[in-house]
């Protein structure tokens, strides 16, 4: 029974890894992930790829519009679109 607490499935390990990219995995989850990482190649490759993705996105300093501003633009544009169509 106790074994199952610390030994998790590959899917669960990937889920914890995803959460960890956003700093939302707690220590017990991290421990479970690390145990799985020792022997599971699929988890190892997923973690490697996932970390790379986080790094690439962080390095890119990619930006996007905040939702409020997008809505303002949408409002103004919809008005212009209506005028354009009429």
């Amino acid at each position: 029974m106790k074994k199952n607490v610390l030994f998790i499935s590959c899917e669960e390990a990937q889920h914890i890894c995803d959460k960890n990219q956003y700093g939302e995995a707690n220590w017990i989850e991290k421990l479970k992930l690390n145990i799985r990482l020792i022997y599971c190649r699929v988890t190892q490759s997923y973690v490697k790829q996932n970390k790379k993705l986080s790094k690439v996105i962080k390095n890119s300093e990619v930006k996007c519009m905040d939702n409020q501003c997008k809505e303002t633009i949408r409002k103004n544009f919809d008005k212009a679109l209506k005028e354009h169509n009429s």
């Binding site: 990619v62 930006k63 996007c64 519009m65 997008k70 633009i73 949408r74 544009f77 679109l81 354009h84």
Partner: peptide, 18 residues
């Protein structure tokens, strides 16, 4: 199709501009 412009391109254009 201007109805889709805001959803499809606003973030892309914003990132390009910033």
């Amino acid at each position: 199709n201007p109805n889709k412009w805001i959803d499809l391109y606003s973030d892309y254009l914003f990132n390009y501009t910033i």
